[in-house]
Design a protein around this nucleic acid. Structure first.
Length: 710
DNA sequence: CATAGCCGCCTTTTT
DNA sequence: GGCGGCTATG
C-alpha cells in the first residue's frame, strides 16, 4: 500500500492497522472509523505479504460483507479474502466437510417459519399440547441451548426437573425431524461447525492453516458458539483481530454474549488492545446526548466519546398527539430538509418495532416522499418466492418434506390431503421418504388409479427439472416457474398476482446477479446462501429515498439526519424488558446505537396517544428522554415546535379547504353526525372518509361535502 | 378436492 | 390488526 494512505489515519487507527501478527482487540466507539480500520487492515496484511485467501473476515450482515469486499478492493487489496458472516462461513465449511461433520452436503437451511413447523410437529409428536408448550417458546429455549453449544443428547443428560426433561424430549424429537428432512436451522450452522472443530482436529488444523488471519467485526454481538468457532479457527496461529464496542451490544436476546469481548484479554493474554475513542461522525451536541444516556448503564466500563466535530444543532425533541401526527410531522420535516437541498438518502427513520413503519409509510405516501422500508425478511417470505424456492429445494434435497409439501399441490394439480396422507402412510410403512413414496406411486395400493397418476405426473416433472440442476441458477428458476404452472396460475389473477409475478422476476434478476458474482456458484450454494439473506442486504444506499428501519437494523449505518420515533414507556424501553435490569440496559444501548447514527441532525419524538393492536392508548414518555441531559424545558413541549396541521404543504397551493384528522367528530347535512376515519390530503381535492352514526361509511370530497366540526 | 369465509391466535428486536 | 388454520359449502 502506498505510504500516503496511512497518513489519513490517526495514530491509534494506524496502530491497529499495522499490527500484523498476534491477537488484537480494537475497542471502537461509534463513528470512530472502525470499518475503515478493518478494510485498511486487510489491505495492510496483503501488503505485508499475506496471501488474500489466508484472510478471513467476519461481518455481522451480508450487506456489511459486500461493502467490505468492495472497499478493500478499492483500497488496492487484491480480491480473494474470504469475507462473509459467520453463518455463511459455516455453510461453506459444513458443505465442504459434510462427512466429518455428520451432515449431508445437500442440507436445506431452515428459516424461522420452517423451524416453527418442525417444532410444532415435535411438540405434537411428544404428546404435548401446543398451548402449554408453545412452539415459539420451545424454539426459543432450543435456540438458546444451541447457541451455548449444548446438543440434545447432553441436555438430556443434565435435565433434572420436569420442565427440562420435557424440553429435552422435545429437543430430541425436533432434531430427529430436522435430520429426517436433511435440514439445518440457523443455529445448527454454528453448532455443527463448533462440534466439527472440536471433534475433528484434522479439520480444525486444515482450516486454521487456510485462515491464518481472522478478523471479526461487531465482536460484542457474538454468541458462545461463534466464540468457540473463532477460538478453534485461530488455535494454530493466534492471529485474531476482534473489533467492537460493548456499548453497542444489542443482540443479547439472540444469544450474544457480551462477555466474549470483555474477556478477550483473558482468552488471549498477549493481546494488544487499541482504543478508538474519537468520533468523526456526529456533532458534539449529538454525542453529548449519547454520552449522557449511556452513562446511566451501570454494568459498563466508563468510556468517553470524544467529539471532533463542532457543536452543531440542538437535539430536537418533539411531542405529538398521536402516531399519525408524529408520522406527518416527520414527513413535514423531511420535506423541509429536501427543499433546503438535503439528500433524501441521507435521512432515516428508526423505530423499536416493525409495526411502527405503517404510520410513517402512510404519511410519506401522502406527502409523496420516496422511501424504502428496510425489513427483516419481507422479500424472501413472500408466498410466491417461497413457492419457487421450495421447488428448487426439492430438486437438490428430495428429503426436504417441508418443501415438498409446499409444492406438491401448488399450483393446484388435484393432489389433495387424502392422497398425500396415503402416500405418507406408505412411506412410513416402508421406511422411505415421502418423495420416494411418490416415485413409487403405482405401488401404493391404498391410492385410486387417478391419485397414482397425478403423483406420477408430478414426479416426472420434478425429475425433468433435475436434469438442469447443474446449469446457472436464473434459467433454472425460470424453467421451474413456467413449467410448474406457477406462472400461469399468477397470470390469471388480479393486481395482487401481478405484483407476485414482478416479485418472481426480481428473484430471477437477483439470481442472475448471483450467477455472475458467486465464488462457487451452484443451485445448492444459492439455496443455502439465499436462506441467510435478509432485506437489510438489499437496502440500496444509493437510492434517493428515505430509509425506514428498526433500531436493530440501523447498526453500522450512518445518516445526516436521523429521526427516532416512539420514545415512549413500554415501547422504548420495550415493556418486555421491564423485569430485567440487563435487558433494560440493552434497551438503552439500542437508543444509544440509534442516536450515534446521526451526523448532524437528530430528531426524537413521542406521541401522547398510540394505537396498539387497534386500540388508542394514552402513553407516557420514555424515561430515556430525561437521561439525555437536555434541559427539561425542551423535553415536553406542549405544542409542537415546528409542525401544526394548518401549516401543511398544501396550504401553499392557495386553496384552503378545511382539514380533518382521524377520530375527529363531524356533522353532515344529510347523514348527520359521524367520525372521521381517514383524511387524504390532496389540496383542494382532499377526500375525507367518515363513518356516520347511521352505520354507513362514506368517502367525500371535502370541497363539496360541507362537513362541520362538532 | 377446491374455495371462501370465519375464528382465534399472537404481536420485539434477526443471522 | 394480520395471519394461519379450520370448517362449511360447492
Amino acid at each position: 500500500m502506498q505510504h500516503a494512505l496511512y497518513d489519513q489515519l490517526t495514530a491509534s487507527q494506524r496502530e491497529a492497522v499495522l499490527h500484523i501478527e498476534g491477537p488484537l482487540l480494537v475497542l471502537a466507539g461509534p463513528g470512530s472509523g472502525k470499518t475503515r480500520v478493518i478494510t485498511y487492515r486487510i489491505a495492510a496484511l496483503i501488503d505485508a505479504g499475506v496471501r488474500p485467501d489466508n484472510i478471513c473476515a467476519i461481518t455481522f450482515t451480508n450487506k456489511a460483507a459486500t461493502e467490505m469486499r468492495q472497499r478493500a478492493v478499492a483500497l488496492g487489496a487484491s480480491a480473494g479474502a474470504h469475507i462473509s458472516t459467520f453463518h455463511s462461513l459455516c455453510v461453506r465449511i459444513l458443505r465442504r466437510y459434510a462427512e466429518q461433520a455428520g451432515v449431508r452436503a445437500s442440507f436445506s437451511v431452515y428459516d424461522e417459519s420452517d423451524q416453527a413447523r418442525c417444532m410444532k410437529q415435535a411438540v405434537k409428536d411428544c404428546g404435548l399440547d401446543t398451548t402449554n408448550f408453545s412452539p415459539a417458546r420451545m424454539l426459543e429455549a432450543v435456540s438458546a441451548l444451541k447457541n451455548n453449544v449444548i446438543d440434545a443428547q447432553s441436555f438430556t443428560q443434565q435435565a433434572d426437573d420436569f420442565f427440562s426433561r420435557t424440553l429435552a424430549r422435545i429437543y430430541l424429537r425436533y432434531e430427529q425431524i430436522l435430520a429426517e428432512r436433511n435440514g439445518l436451522d440457523f443455529d445448527d450452522l454454528l453448532l455443527k461447525t463448533a462440534f466439527l472443530l472440536r471433534d475433528r482436529s484434522d479439520v480444525r488444523i486444515e482450516l486454521a492453516n487456510r485462515f491464518r488471519f481472522l478478523l471479526i467485526d461487531e465482536y460484542q454481538d457474538t454468541n458462545h458458539a461463534q466464540y468457540r468457532i473463532a477460538r478453534d479457527l485461530v488455535s494454530e496461529h493466534n492471529n485474531i483481530c476482534a473489533t467492537g464496542d460493548p456499548d453497542q451490544s444489542i443482540y443479547r436476546w439472540r444469544g450474544a454474549d457480551i462477555r466474549n469481548i470483555l474477556a478477550f484479554e483473558k482468552d488471549w493474554p498477549d493481546a494488544v488492545v487499541v482504543k478508538l475513542e474519537e468520533n468523526f461522525r456526529s456533532t458534539a451536541r449529538i454525542l453529548e446526548a449519547a454520552d449522557s444516556l449511556i452513562a446511566f448503564n451501570q454494568s459498563r466500563k466508563q468510556k468517553r466519546l470524544l467529539p471532533t466535530r463542532p457543536a452543531g444543532k440542538d437535539v430536537d425533541v418533539t411531542v405529538f398527539e398521536d402516531e399519525a401526527e408524529e408520522a406527518h410531522g416527520v414527513a413535514h420535516r423531511i420535506k423541509e430538509l429536501a427543499d433546503a437541498g438535503q439528500s433524501l438518502r441521507e435521512a432515516a427513520v428508526f423505530y423499536r418495532v416493525n409495526a411502527m413503519s405503517r404510520a410513517v409509510e402512510e404519511a410519506f405516501i401522502r406527502s409523496k416522499i420516496p422511501y424504502q422500508v428496510v425489513r427483516g425478511v419481507e422479500f424472501y417470505n413472500r408466498k410466491e418466492i417461497r413457492d419457487v424456492l421450495a421447488y428448487l429445494k426439492v430438486l437438490v434435497n428430495p428429503r426436504d418434506e417441508l418443501a415438498l409439501m409446499r409444492i406438491i399441490n401448488t399450483p393446484a394439480r388435484g393432489i389433495g390431503k387424502t392422497t398425500i396422507d396415503r402416500a405418507r402412510a406408505y412411506a412410513a410403512a416402508n421406511g422411505i421418504t415421502l418423495y420416494e413414496a411418490c416415485t413409487r406411486a403405482g405401488n401404493i395400493d391404498a391410492l385410486p388409479k387417478a391419485g397414482q397418476a397425478k403423483l406420477t405426473v408430478f414426479v416426472k416433472m420434478i425429475e425433468q427439472f433435475k436434469a438442469h440442476v447443474g446449469e446457472k441458477v436464473a434459467p433454472v428458476i425460470e424453467r421451474v416457474f413456467v413449467e410448474s404452472g406457477l406462472e400461469k396460475s399468477l397470470e390469471l389473477g388480479g393486481l395482487r398476482d401481478q405484483a407476485a409475478l414482478e416479485n418472481v422476476e426480481e428473484l430471477m434478476n437477483a439470481a442472475a446477479q448471483y450467477d455472475a458474482e458467486a465464488e462457487e456458484p451452484s443451485l445448492l450454494d444459492y439455496l443455502q446462501q439465499v436462506a441467510l439473506f435478509s432485506d437489510v442486504d438489499s437496502y440500496d444506499t444509493s437510492a434517493e429515498r428515505v430509509a425506514l428501519m428498526t433500531l436493530h437494523a440501523a447498526k453500522g449505518l450512518e445518516f445526516d439526519n436521523v429521526f427516532i420515533i416512539g420514545l415512549e414507556d413500554g415501547l422504548l424501553p420495550h415493556e418486555r424488558s421491564y423485569d430485567d435490569r440487563d435487558q433494560m440496559e440493552e434497551e438503552r444501548r439500542l437508543l444509544f446505537v440509534g442516536i450515534t447514527r446521526a451526523r448532524t441532525g437528530l430528531n426524537l419524538s413521542w406521541a401522547r396517544y398510540r394505537t396498539v393492536r387497534g386500540q388508542m392508548l394514552r402513553t407516557i414518555h420514555s424515561q430515556f428522554l430525561e437521561e439525555l441531559g437536555i434541559e427539561p424545558a425542551r423535553l415536553d413541549t406542549e405544542q409542537q415546535a415546528w409542525y401544526s396541521p394548518d401549516d401543511d404543504d398544501n396550504a401553499r397551493t392557495g386553496a384552503h379547504p378545511p382539514k380533518f384528522v382521524t377520530g375527529q367528530k363531524v356533522r353532515h347535512e344529510c347523514f348527520g353526525p359521524g367520525k372521521v376515519e381517514e383524511f387524504i390530503d390532496m389540496g383542494e381535492n382532499s377526500v375525507v372518509v367518515v363513518k356516520f352514526n347511521t352505520g354507513q361509511t362514506k368517502s367525500l370530497l371535502v370541497k363539496y361535502a360541507d362537513l362541520s366540526e362538532i
